[in-house]
Design a protein around this nucleic acid. Structure first.
Length: 281
DNA sequence: CGAGTGCCCTGACAGC
DNA sequence: TGCTGTCAGGGCACTC
């Protein structure tokens, strides 16, 4: 689900999945004739991009917030939208970073626009994610059967870092961003500051469920929000309405009425209810 | 090696 | 009006 701030939409996992579904029918089977870096200096974020030329796109997959496009000559195109990345068949007015020329067919040019340059658009040997440590060490997909309470419990034992920080690392489960981490922890009644390996046993299952529910609900709301976003800026309100704690500092907790607290954790804004999410060991 | 910090990058916005 | 400072955050380099 997109989180709209001003004119920008922060891509969360559901939006990346939406992008994947849009790219699939467009790109699968097409051959990349040319891959160019535009308005961007050489950078690891666009590593080996030119290797994509001459290769056919075999699929459009997703892992967490990464898009993975296996190519015909043994490489893989890795795309991360970062904060402001947009993939489109139409040229952007500014901030164009990558241009892919495709073989014959509709919409023969793919433009990657990224205002804040947090995104990536690079080529690696297929499955070789050593240059992308987060992808390399990524946990199970939250909406797949591979994400289980038992496995989640095992993962949480491996770290003493605050549970929210650990969720953001993508290691215990893939695709949880700052907003969803706060919302899931609130739903489960777990303090974001609790060390991962001290989350009480009886809370692991609920937190596992909360992660799934928050992401599933956001996917459900995606269409509506996208429509609003396209029409005007109404998408902001409709999405924010669905959030219980994120962005609601000093407002009453929807569950107990106590004021929502805002703190900095891992250089991220963190919102929680001190009553519903007590810090206990 | 785990944990913590700060950088990247740009635009919106508040305050003076 | 126009300038300055602050905020936003996914991933990763760096330090301890």
């Amino acid at each position: 689900m997109p989180f709209t701030r001003g004119e920008f939409t922060i891509p969360e996992l559901p939006e990346v999945e939406t992008v994947r579904r849009e790219l699939e029918p467009w790109l699968v089977g097409r051959t990349i004739l040319q891959a160019e870096r535009v308005e961007a200096p050489p950078s690891p974020k666009y590593a080996s991009l030119e290797r994509a030329a001459g290769q056919r796109i075999g699929a459009v997959n997703r892992r967490g917030k990464f898009l993975l496009l296996p190519l015909s000559l043994g490489d893989e195109l890795v795309v991360h939208l970062g904060m402001t990345g947009v993939v489109s068949p139409d040229p952007p007015e500014a901030h164009l970073r990558v241009k892919l020329t495709l073989d014959h067919g509709p919409d023969p040019t793919l433009y990657f626009c990224d205002v804040r340059r947090f995104g990536r658009f690079l080529v690696v040997p297929a499955g070789d994610y050593r240059s992308l440590p987060t992808l390399h060490g990524m946990g199970p997909e939250p909406l797949c059967d591979t994400f289980t309470a038992a496995g989640f419990a095992q993962a949480l034992k491996r770290s003493g870092t605050p549970i929210k920080s650990y969720l953001l690392s993508q290691k215990p489960v893939a695709g949880v961003g700052n907003i969803y981490a706060d919302e899931a922890l609130w739903r489960a009644g777990v303090s974001p500051l609790t060390p991962a390996n001290r989350v009480s046993v009886c809370k692991v299952g609920p937190l596992c469920d909360a992660v799934r529910e928050v992401l599933a609900a956001s996917i459900e709301a995606q269409g509506t929000t996208l429509n609003d976003y396209r029409t005007v800026s109404g998408g902001v309100g409709s999405y924010l309405k669905g959030l219980n704690v994120y962005g609601h500092a000093d407002e009453p907790c929807p569950r107990c009425g106590r004021a929502i607290c805002k703190v900095r954790l891992s250089s991220r804004s963190t919102y929680f209810c001190p009553r519903c999410q007590p810090a206990r060991t």
